[in-house]
């Protein structure tokens, strides 16, 4: 009899009386699993949000795509009162202020970072680094305000106009993107091993030779990263631009005549727009969203390459 029963109760027979190693209890297992799913849901919320932003903005923009068509949407005439919703001059405006801001901001930002990491004494570094951090914290509305009351009159005197236009926006945006570019470039420079700097100095290179022959090439990708993110910041900036560009949705005659950008036009028109006009604003939002997502994609590709 016993011999026949053994196979069925094998497990119990092998460990008589002694305390068994507990199997994972069902409640603990469920609790841990449930928590894990909650955490996952929270993390996945970021994905959901990005999709929602795209879908919702596109949905609100649909009328402008279907009613007037993509060709007219990407034409040059922006005149809502006459049902013309061409965004090219606004896109050009955004491009113009961004390129100018980068041309001024990149040398300043990268130069500041190189000075702080490679050249400055510890004492100077301790003074300037926090200043750059604080500069990054100042809200864009204050930059816009500053640009409007200080830089604009200055440009007006210089060029003889009102001072609203791309040139003023360049100054304001350049100041705004410097902290972004500087902070990220500092990270890139700090990630270069000290050893290759020493090697360069030991070969009899001067500081400048070390910087441009060894340090900058080694930090190249990180600096490109910084510039792309600075670019994203410049394209997406709304309030500071709104306050200084003059808001004329045309291709400008000069860099000191009023223009408009995608962001500033949205902010300006949202309060009174309706129907197709409002839908066009959402269409511009979609364009901005795609640009910024593409820039982030570029940065991620670069980061992968950096390893």
């Amino acid at each position: 009899m016993e011999a026949q029963e053994t196979p069925q109760i094998e497990q119990e027979a092998q460990t008589p009386k002694k305390r068994e190693l507990a199997l994972v209890s069902r409640s603990t297992y469920l609790k841990e699993k449930a928590l894990q799913w909650i955490f996952f849901a929270c993390a996945f919320l970021a994905v959901v949000t990005v999709i929602l932003i795209f879908v919702f903005t596109t949905y609100s923009a649909l009328p402008v795509f279907t009613d007037i068509g993509l060709a007219d949407f990407f034409s040059f005439t922006w005149a809502p009162s006459e049902d013309h919703y061409g965004i090219m001059s606004l896109l050009a405006g955004s491009g113009l202020v961004t390129v100018g801001a980068l041309a001024m901001g990149v040398p300043l930002g990268v130069g500041t970072a190189v000075y702080l990491v490679e050249i400055a004494s510890k004492r100077v570094r301790r003074l300037i680094s926090p200043a750059v951090d604080l500069l990054a914290g100042i809200p864009s509305i204050i930059y816009g305000f500053f640009g409007m009351v200080i830089i604009r009159p200055f440009i007006a005197q210089l060029t003889g106009g009102l001072g609203f236009g791309a040139l003023t926006a360049w100054f304001v945006l350049a100041i705004m993107i410097v902290p972004t570019i500087t902070t990220l470039t500092i990270d890139a420079l700090n990630s270069i091993p000290m050893g290759i700097r020493e090697a360069s100095y030991a070969m009899g290179a001067t500081k400048w030779q070390t910087i441009y022959k060894v340090v900058l090439p080694a930090a190249k990708l990180g600096i490109v990263d910084a510039i792309v993110l600075g670019m994203g910041r410049a394209i997406g900036e709304t309030m500071a631009v709104l306050m200084v560009v003059g808001n004329a949705p045309v291709i400008p005659d000069s860099i000191s005549s009023p223009i408009s950008t995608l962001t500033s036009q949205i902010a300006l028109d949202m309060s009174y727009s309706s129907g197709l006009h409002r839908s066009a604003l959402f269409g511009m939002g979609v364009v901005l969203f795609i640009i910024s997502a593409a820039l982030v994609g570029i940065v991620r590709l670069i980061s992968k390459k950096r390893g």
Partner: peptide
């Protein structure tokens, strides 16, 4: 990628989205 994209959504677009949703 979504978190990075979210971080770089222009604030006016976030405003538009907030308004719509």
């Amino acid at each position: 990628y979504a978190a990075d994209a979210l971080a770089s959504v222009p604030s006016i677009v976030m405003g538009l989205f907030g308004y719509a949703l």
